[in-house]
């Protein structure tokens, strides 16, 4: 009896090792795995010992359709001109599955609705949006097939619509749905599961979404113009020959940044521009189109300030003489 038992044990271990291809995972046994159960018995009868096996019952594990979506931005992303929101799509089912991706910038409670520019799959899986590298998909397009327990990132590039108030909040919803199908848990799609079985909607309804948050970051510019007159007699009377120094203070406000800012002014009629008199923050500028910020002529000035962050200001001056 002991001999027979030992022999049988070895055989049964081998049989269960053959099933080892079906490794257990967080999402459960991979769809298509066969669960095979065989019992055996040994017994004495008279003086001999006998072993006998049962038939093998075999059932195939069907595919569970489940998905999870997570926003990977820990805090609201500042949105000046454009911003990138990152989401993760997890295949929490037990079979290979692709998911459709729908992006909606219209979410109840939004202070503004961002403009969706680009939706991309993190093809090289490095977590950073790289234009030209990551695969762009249309809204409603799908991810590549993800293995059970695998995940991918989705980038959503959004732009700030014009007229958005500084500090306004917005959310963007990304929804993923199993391509095989979705619906009430338990809904099954015959023969459409991985490995030839059925596909069954799991507890997540095979449809999930997450919200990414944005906060508008914009700035506006205020220009304040003032002047000082110095007449040829040491006074401040606007008489012919008096020199008028104009000062234009450009001040940006808001949490964002103003880009490509130029201060442009015309020379007042009845006055003559004093050549090379433009200053920016006290530094003299030449009139020529050269390396410095200013271009000026008898008709007017154009001073390039460029980017100006909210809360900062720049001062431009120029001189004319009264004719």
């Amino acid at each position: 009896m002991t001999n027979h038992c030992t022999k049988f044990m070895i055989a049964s271990v081998a049989a269960s090792a053959a099933l080892g291809a079906s490794q257990a995972q967080a999402a459960g046994v991979t769809a298509g795995t066969l669960i095979q159960n065989t019992a055996s018995a040994s017994y004495g009868s008279g003086s001999s010992t006998t072993t006998v096996n049962s038939n093998t019952v075999s059932i195939r594990v069907d595919e569970l359709l489940d998905v999870a979506v997570t926003s990977l931005n820990a805090a609201a992303v500042p949105l000046a001109s454009t911003a990138v929101l990152t989401y993760r799509i997890d295949n929490t089912g037990n079979g290979s599955e692709a998911f459709s991706i729908n992006v909606s910038p219209t979410v109840s409670g939004n202070g503004f609705d961002a403009t969706v520019q680009t939706i991309a799959i993190d093809s090289n899986d490095n977590g950073t949006y790289e234009p030209g590298v990551d695969t762009v998909i249309a809204n409603g397009g799908s991810t590549p097939a993800l293995a059970a327990d695998a995940s991918t990132r989705v980038f959503v590039v959004v732009a700030q619509p014009s007229g958005t108030a500084d500090g306004a909040a917005s959310q963007v919803r990304v929804t993923a749905q199993a391509l095989t199908g979705a619906g009430t848990p338990g809904t099954s799609f015959a023969g459409q599961g991985q490995g030839g079985g059925d596909a069954v909607v799991g507890a997540t309804t095979a449809n999930a979404n997450a919200l990414g948050s944005l906060i508008a970051s914009s700035a506006s510019v205020a220009l304040v113009k003032s002047y000082v007159v110095v007449d040829p007699f040491g006074g401040a009377k606007p008489v012919p020959g008096a020199v008028v120094t104009f000062t234009i203070a450009a001040t940006a406000s808001g949490s964002g940044m103003v880009n490509d800012l130029h201060v442009i002014d015309a020379i007042p009629t009845g006055t003559t521009y004093v050549a090379n008199s433009v200053t920016l923050e006290g530094a003299s500028q030449t009139d020529a189109t050269d390396g410095d910020a200013a271009i000026a002529s008898s008709s007017g000035i154009d001073v390039t300030i460029g980017a100006l962050a909210g809360g900062t200001s720049r001062s431009v001056t120029f001189k004319t003489t009264i004719n």
């Binding site: 009896m1 038992c5 049988f8 044990m9 049964s12 271990v13 049989a15 269960s16 099933l19 080892g20 079906s22 490794q23 257990a24 046994v29 795995t33 066969l34 669960i35 095979q36 159960n37 065989t38 019992a39 055996s40 018995a41 040994s42 017994y43 004495g44 009868s45 008279g46 010992t49 006998t50 594990v61």
Partner: peptide
């Protein structure tokens, strides 16, 4: 005939 020392052994499938 009667049988004795009847022992049923069932390896548990790995998937369960």
């Amino acid at each position: 005939q009667s049988v004795d020392n009847f022992v049923v052994t069932n390896p548990v499938p790995q998937a369960v």
